[in-house]
Design a protein around this nucleic acid. Structure first.
Lengths: 222, 222
DNA sequence: GGCAAAATGTTGTAAAAACAACATACATCT
DNA sequence: AGATGTATGTTGTTTTTACAACATTTTGCC
């Protein structure tokens, strides 16, 4: 068994699967390992959907061509990352995005119908896989919903407070470190970086919070 | 068989299930029909998650209490609507939102573990149910992602163009009718209604589009 | 330690949006 | 048709943000 394939055991989709079970599961799924050279198209926009992909090594990029003709990078994919699973599960006919290798890479491609199909040999880990697939989609859902709550706020200050309060809640403390630098936080909240910096400064002066780089301390709510 | 239960056949979760199969499926799922009086709490914020609900008749509301103590209405639920499925599938321990009856209603509650469990009698429609559940989550994903793309735009005009272009694409025509009135569109895009109206007027004057009420015609891109 | 590069902060100005208040158009009911 | 309520559009003012340009701080490297 190719040791490269063991990469997938680290992914949420294969959580709970043992290295011993993996070969049988992959064969049951008819998973195909493919090699791509840097720049090569893995899944083309407009091509039939229905496969899910996992990056084994190397890197790739999910992108889309805008109605204005602009190309937007939707996601950078690193080893262990899953892609196209939403389109497959939603029975989308053609890929609305493209996936392109950004370095030489190996990708595991799985026909989605094999994921949900009851396998003839009734492998128990297959049940686990479906359970995982549901969890992956649901988690993504929560993540998106979360971000939406922040972005739906009218002002930058509200967006920030919404985000920071959520981070505090997650950390279980009013002091916490966010996983972004200023530019990344600005991108995440869809605001201008320098405006974000100055708003943070203003909020600090007003006593709403304290911060240094990526570490924040919120003032206790009144 | 209670005819009220036939309501679920209209939902995406039960798509493909026949009325004949329904009783067996519901018993396999150990689905419970419960009656709630207006104002009664169906699922409380902080209570253990793990059940999914379907509104059979009447209405309910999903809401959340903000860190500031404000109550936010997240969704209005009508007959056939599904709720709490994301939390169940994501294995969230406690409900982060509450569901309250806004009129006398009947709700079908299903323990999520029964959805993914392989049933002892191996019912084929159970496989269909799981397939549907995946599709429901994936669809919601796409919807959220879509909205996120609009909200991530910096200016109101860009938000609008992003939304309207997507509507045009969906309609397959530069002329289309949106499912919102002005206030709803403003809420959806998280902008001020009157500002939205005036921006639309400005865009019309600039020849970017034409509209009357909810019907829009986009100018062909240069 | 000193240097260069990157990250963060600051400021002023122009642009955009929120907000408020009102005008007009449309729909519905009698 | 007239009246009433709702939806939409318009305008001016205030607030907020984007943007640009630059200052300061931090980081990594030699």
């Amino acid at each position: 068994m190719d040791t490269l394939l063991l990469t997938v055991l680290q992914t949420p989709l294969f959580a709970g699967v043992t290295p011993q079970e993996l070969p049988a599961l992959l064969s049951c799924l008819r998973a195909e390992k493919k090699a791509y050279a840097k720049g090569e198209v893995i899944l083309a926009e407009g091509a039939p959907a229905g496969h899910i992909g996992i990056v084994l090594n190397g890197s790739a990029q999910v992108g889309q061509d805008d109605f204005m003709g602009y190309h937007t990078i939707i996601a950078n994919l690193a080893p262990g990352h899953l892609f196209a699973e939403t389109f497959a599960a939603a029975h989308i006919k053609t890929m609305p995005v493209s996936v392109v290798a950004t370095s030489n890479c190996h990708i595991l491609l799985i026909d989605y119908t094999r994921v949900t199909a009851v396998c003839s040999i009734g492998c128990p880990f297959h049940t686990q896989l479906i359970e995982n697939m549901l969890a992956v989609l649901a988690d993504k859902n929560l993540t998106l919903n979360n971000k939406l709550n922040h972005l739906a706020k009218r002002t930058m200050r509200e967006k920030l407070l919404s985000y920071l309060n959520e981070q505090a809640r997650q950390a279980g403390s009013l002091t916490f470190t966010i996983p972004f630098n200023r530019q990344e936080l600005a991108d995440y909240l869809s605001v201008d970086r320098s405006a974000l910096s100055s708003e943070l400064g203003r909020m600090q002066r007003e006593g709403l919070l304290q911060f240094s780089r990526s570490q924040f301390t919120l003032a206790a709510p009144v």
